[in-house]
Every structure is written in C-alpha cells, then in structure tokens.
Design a protein around this nucleic acid. Structure first.
Lengths: 340, 340
DNA sequence: TGATTTTGCTAAAACGTTTTATATAATTGT
DNA sequence: ACAATTATATAAAACGTTTTAGCAAAATCA
C-alpha cells in the first residue's frame, strides 16, 4: 500500500533528481554523462519496485501517443480482420498499439472518428476510406500526421496508399473466362463510387469490349445482405438464359449469389460459371470450388504498416515527401466453378 | 498558423480563467454558478475556433483514459472479429475507444500485453485468457480495474465473465446424435486445458456414458492447421470403420476435418455424420450443410461490454462487488450432415 | 598556478487539463 | 445599516513525464 510510484518518488527515495532518473530510464545515461554507479543504483531500484512509466504523462509531454488508428470498413469482414491481425502484430513489435473502428462506409461517422482520434493524439492512421472524407484526410496530412490509405484511393488526396491492381486483375479474369469459351459474362457489383469498385468494373468492361463481346451486363446489388440475396434471386430468374458466367466484385456479394443460385437449382459451372473477387475459405470448400481473385493480405498489411512506421520514424519535415503509391498483384485461383 | 489552441489560450483570449473555461466545457456551469452570459461567450468562441480538448492531458489529470482493452485469442477468427465489431460499436456510443490485440493463447505474451495496457492506463479489460494469467488478472482486479473474462473462465479468479453453456450444449448435441441412431461417436478437440474446451469434452463424455455407449473416442488434434489436417487424415484413415459420427470442438477443427473427409472420399452423413461447435458461414453453404452449435455472438458481446460499462460507471468502491457469472445458451442448428 | 574543459548532476519549465479552496461582489434579511 | 447569504469567478496545485539550460567539481592544459 506504499506511496504511488512515479519518477518523482524514485528520485526522492534515491536522493537524486527526476532528471537523472528520466535520463537513465530513457537510455540517455551515456550521452548525458550519468556515472555508471548511479545508473546501476537507479536501475536496481526500478527493477526492485517494478516501476513502469506512465505513458499518458510521457505522451502529454512528448506529443507522441504510440498509438495508431486503424479505420476499416468493417472489422468483422474476414479481409479486414486478417489485415487487423497482421498490422497489430507488426505495430506491437515496434512499440505501437492499435485502436480500431469500423466506418460502415459512412463518411460522417468516419469524419467523427478521425476527429476523436485527433483528440487522442494518435501518431498515425491507416484508413480504408468511404467517399466523402477527402478534405478531412488532407487536413490530417497538413496537421503533420502520416496517413496510409488502404484498399482504395482517393482522388485529390496526396497520401501514401497501398492497394491491389483491381483493373488488371478483373481484366485478366474476364479474359480467362472468355478463353474458356464463355461469352455472355455478367458483372455484379455494388452501387459504389469507391475506386476499387470502379476499377474492377472497368477491367471487366474493357475486357468485354476488347474481345468484341457485347453486351456488358452490369448489375447493381443492394448493400444489405438479405435484400441482396432476394435481388439476385430475381435477377437470375429473369436473366438465367442470357448469362453464362458471372464475376462478383466482392466475396460477400458472391456468397449472396451462390445462395440465390442454389435456390434456383442452377448448376455451377454447367449452367453458370462463377468468379469472385477476393478469396474466402468458403470458396475453396464449396461444391464446386469457386474460382477467385485472391488479394495478398499479408503483403498489403505489411506494406501499409511499414509505410506508416517509416514515416513515423523520420523527422516531421518530410511528411510531405512525395506520397508512395504501392500497387500489389492479386493471385488468380482457377477452381471448378469455371471449368469448362 | 495561429497559436496552439488550448484551454489556456482560450482563457487568455477571453480574459477569463482556465477554471471557468473548464467548468463550462464540462457542463458544470450551472453547478459552479457561471453566469449564462459568460457561458455563452465561452461556448461561442469554442465553437468558432472548433476547439477540442486534449484527451491526454485530461486523462493524465483524471486518471481515466476512456480506453478499453480487448484481448482475444486471435482477432482474425470470425468469432472474435464479430465480437470485436459489436463491442467497439457499443463502446463507441458510450465514449470509449477500443485497443485490441491477439494473444495467440500465449500466456507470456498476454501478461506482457496487460502490463502495457496498465501503463497506458486503460480503464477496463475484456479478456479471452489463455491458461497461466490467473495471477495477473487478479492483480488487475486488485488495482481497481474492472475485468470481464470472455469465452472461458479461470479458476481462482473472481471476476465477471460471460460464456456459453459449453457442457450442456455438447451434452445435448451428443444426445441428438444418439437419438438419430448414431452409436460410435468421436469427439475431436485440441490439447487444451481451457475451461471451454474441457467443458465441451465433459459434455460429450457424460452423454456417452449416460447412454451406455462405449467407448469414448477422444482425439487430440494439433494446433497448427496444416499439421492438423494431416493428423486428421491419418486418424480417419485408421478409424473410419469404427466411427459413425464426429463432434468437433471448434469450427476451425471442423474445417480441417472436412478437408480430410473430402480427401478420403467419405460421404457425409452416410459414411460419417458431423457436428461442429461454433457456427460458420461455411457450414451453412457446405454440401452437405453442417450441423452446428451456434454461439450467440451478439448477446455475448453485449453482455460483456454492458458488464464492463456498468462497472466503469459505478464508483470505485464496489469493484469487489460479487462478480457476475453470465452463462448464455447456444442454438443447435441441425443440418444435413446429421440427417439419418 | 590559473585558465579551460570535461564530468556529473539538477532546477525548473513545459505539456493541457481538472479541481479544491478561496476571494470578491451582489443580494437578501433584519 | 450591517450581517449573513448567495452568486460569480479565479489562483494555484496536481497529474507524471521530458528536456533545456546551467551549475559545481574534477580533470586537463599551458
């Protein structure tokens, strides 16, 4: 039930100054010419009482919190939780903690989140941004905090980002289907202006055009998963005759599609072939196994956190050093759902 | 490019004291008898310059960080990431932020994590504990920080916990199989002394005994997922003739089992019936659909965060009020994998 | 020896709040 | 008209660090 333990109480107990204790604790003993004898004395006592500095006080004084904000669309999505795992691990090893939240793709919520994290003086941000947070992110940058944008990019926002070659991936996946002999290929996506979604769509459209295969069959599915399933059910009911293959722009849309397809009793790939963007354990195990475009989750995470850490370690001045644009390749995994 | 903005600069600018500003900002104007005129003046200016208090300074002064630590086994497991989502949402609405990490079931790492969060002065903890952190958690409690244990319980640790009736769930799932006519029922689990695992095993064993159905066929699978699949493959190869049904103690063990079963070309449920503890989207979609014991994720999360928030809102004194033990019911979801 | 440098250490300010105790002015009561 | 209350606002300490600037003693130099 002793006194509260702090750098001050340690100093008092040892009859020295807090300055000295602080220097020793921060490994500046050499530099600040504290004698070895005194260093040992301090260290021994600190060890003995198992002292741990109060990081709040330290943060207040230094302006660094050693906290990184991770703002994703939905932490419960396998893609994002896998990223969260990797990023946390690497950040941890570098002395940083992660504070997270889900935006649900809501711009207002995201802006609010960012404000709160600013108050908390987090040191850096990894953000999967919805549309409509451009100015906020630019403001962040201007305030000197490093920001890494993930999974998509924002026009007019000069910041580091790491994402995947969405356009090329879908282009060549579409091409693959065409090579397999499929002609009427549909693309199912969400009503979203997010860059990754638009790029995937463009990849599909361009591949169709380049192969003189009209028409483009683009279908917009609802965001809500129950509604989406219903929507896809009726879509397929109407169009089953006109479509030989479908590319889904995300794995969860694909899951809805699979449910609808099952309900209609359609056979994959005989009646309809399937490709999904973003792999999922389910796709490997499904009958038949679903062809997918797998994102390099580990590499995405690693690049993102490395980028951020390197900014954090550099001196403030070069925050406005030219932003890094990292674009990673996906892996196309052909499975039974596209076996002609 | 103005001066740095703080409560002090506001006070200076308005020619009043920081005390007054602080009172106004904290809604204590009434109580502290600050005149309406002055309140308005402060509020207007605060609005104008869009001032946000520095939460580090506030935390240092008050000893409250408004941060909750969420320590789970692995944030990338669907079960835990779903919980993380729910908990974050509710915490957010109550002014708390969540800082997370994965223990990988490593006791040393977990203890280290807890220490770090102590330094950060987080206000409370939600922990999915590995074995071997009992004393640490007790120490936390003694230090006055509320702790809610999730998913499992620790002997000799008097703290709130919320978990699921593991024993009963497996007991009745086993009974269900027996009712369906299955006799030689195996139980596959990990080499773990964690309460939830032991309880699930006991439920199985007791049900077998109560129905005079020997032998108990308990198999321990490796933790590593590749090894596990290999292990299960050879296990099934040897025992396929002796086993009519399998209960897996977690969903990821079940996934390994399904892979092995597929490789061996066994038919579910004709050759072998399957039940998994913990539902998974994959199980619903698999062919055949896999019977499972679903945990009430939302309710688990809600109870955990509510428990913690209520402790946080109460005065410190009753931290040692009798711990709450919340036990929730699972939902048995019979599917085709057990259809005799 | 006396001047200079090096060594070893520390006082005190600063980070931005919250809160206790108290001062002064205005109002009320008698 | 004077005492007692009440209303309004503030000074200053505290939270626990880091860090700048500087002091005194010891060592080196000429």
């Amino acid at each position: 039930m002793g006194k509260k333990i702090s750098i001050t109480s340690i100093a008092k107990h040892l009859g020295i100054s807090t300055t000295t204790v602080s220097f020793v604790l921060n490994g500046k003993a050499q530099e600040k010419r504290i004698s070895d004898k005194l260093v040992k004395k301090v260290m021994d006592y600190v060890e003995e009482i198992d002292y741990k500095p109060n990081s709040l006080a330290r943060s207040l004084r230094t302006g660094k919190s050693n906290i990184i904000a991770l703002i994703v669309e939905d932490i419960s999505f396998p893609f994002f939780s896998a990223i969260a795992k990797e990023i946390e691990e690497k950040a941890y090893k570098n002395g940083y903690r992660i504070i997270y939240s889900s935006t649900e793709n809501d711009a207002a919520k995201t802006r609010e989140l960012i404000e709160i994290y600013q108050d908390k003086h987090v040191d850096g941000y990894i953000i999967v941004p919805p549309e409509g947070v451009e100015e906020k992110i630019n403001a962040l940058r201007l305030s000197g905090k490093p920001v890494v944008v993930l999974d998509r990019y924002l026009d007019n926002v000069e910041t580091d980002h790491v994402l995947v070659n969405n356009y090329d991936s879908v282009y060549s996946a579409t091409h693959y289907l065409i090579d397999q002999g499929y002609k009427n290929i549909a693309f199912i996506t969400l009503s979203s202006l997010q860059s990754q979604m638009l790029d995937r769509l463009s990849g599909y459209e361009q591949a169709i055009q380049d192969n003189n295969l009209r028409p483009i069959i683009k279908e917009i599915a609802p965001v809500d998963s129950l509604e989406r399933e219903k929507h896809l059910l009726s879509f397929l009911e109407r169009k089953r005759k006109d479509i030989e293959a479908i590319i889904f722009s995300t794995n969860y849309i694909c899951v809805s599609g699979l449910k609808a397809i099952k309900k209609l009793g359609l056979n994959i790939p005989e009646d309809i072939a399937i490709v999904s963007f973003d792999d999922y354990e389910l796709f490997e195990m499904y009958t038949p196994a679903i062809t997918s475009i797998a994102q390099p989750i580990e590499s995405i995470s690693e690049n993102a956190i490395n980028l951020l850490l390197s900014r954090l370690n550099r001196r403030t001045a070069d925050v406005d050093k030219s932003p890094q644009k990292i674009v990673l390749s996906t892996t196309f995994i052909p499975r039974d759902s596209t076996a002609h």
